[in-house]
């Protein structure tokens, strides 16, 4: 294995990291809003809201992301005149926005189930206790339901973020030059597939390792009640595991 070449490859591919992260975080951010909406629709108890949300989740979880990306990018190209009429073409013209759109729709389907699980895990007696103290509506949601739900949902949401970072690699197929796209380009120039892919894999591993650590830190910060008081626990480093 040629380490000098791999170092050069690493330096080239690292240039794709901003776009990879940009795509992942745009999708996760926008997807979270849509997911929240879907989760509320599912929990509304109204069939007119619940059904479309269920269908949405079924369709987007039941088909490969690559199919969704192709359908949005190449498929919608077939309807350019209509989209232009509606003024949406500015948006679908750009591969970047098509990628963000596809990733957002996809992650929203998965995330809505995670959020729903989190909201449903809030113990009813806690809500009752809050009601007894006179909390209701937004205050109840903000102070009691939301924090507990977030704490419950965070580990699963963390995995979803990792999955999204991995999923951005598919954007390379619609001309986006993120890490995988740059890797494919580098291979076309050097014809050394294995080395380049190993380096690309390494970059994703590092990214995901960092993100996992950040999520673990947030989890730790959100659950002070699960931590043992430091005075009782002499082995301080164990608290970080």
């Amino acid at each position: 294995m040629d380490f000098a070449f791999m170092r050069d490859a690493f330096l080239t591919l690292i240039g794709g990291v901003p776009l990879t992260l940009n795509l992942a975080f745009m999708a996760v951010g926008l997807g979270a809003i849509l997911a929240m909406l879907l989760a509320l629709m599912r929990m509304s108890g109204l069939k007119v809201l619940d059904w479309p949300a269920q269908a949405y989740v079924f369709v987007f979880r039941g088909t490969p992301l690559l199919v969704q990306i192709f359908l949005i990018y190449y498929g919608l190209g077939q309807f350019r005149p209509t989209l232009q009429e509606w003024g949406l073409w500015v948006f679908f013209r750009e591969p970047y926005w098509c990628a963000v759109f596809a990733l957002t729709l996809n992650t929203a389907a998965y995330a809505s189930e995670i959020i729903r699980g989190g909201l449903q895990s809030v113990p009813y007696n806690q809500v009752e206790a809050a009601r007894a103290c006179g909390m209701s509506g937004i205050l109840l949601f903000r102070r009691v339901i939301f924090p507990i739900a977030v704490r419950q949902a965070l580990p699963a949401y963390g995995s979803e973020i990792i999955l999204m970072v991995k999923a951005t690699s598919l954007a390379s197929i619609i001309t986006m030059m993120e890490v995988t796209g740059l890797a494919a380009k580098l291979i076309s120039q050097t014809f050394r597939a294995v080395e380049v892919f190993i380096v690309a894999g390494l970059i994703y591993l590092i990214l995901n390792f960092i993100i996992t650590r950040i999520i673990m830190a947030i989890e730790w910060w959100l659950s002070p009640h699960l931590r043992r008081p430091p005075a009782v626990e002499p082995r301080l480093e164990a608290a970080h595991v």
Binding site: T180, A193, V194, F197, G201
Partner: peptide, 19 residues
Amino acid sequence: TTVLRGIPDLLVIYLFYFG
């Protein structure tokens, strides 16, 4: 498990295919 869950499946497939 850590490696396989940390890198994109597309890369694994490419790597497997060529390597």
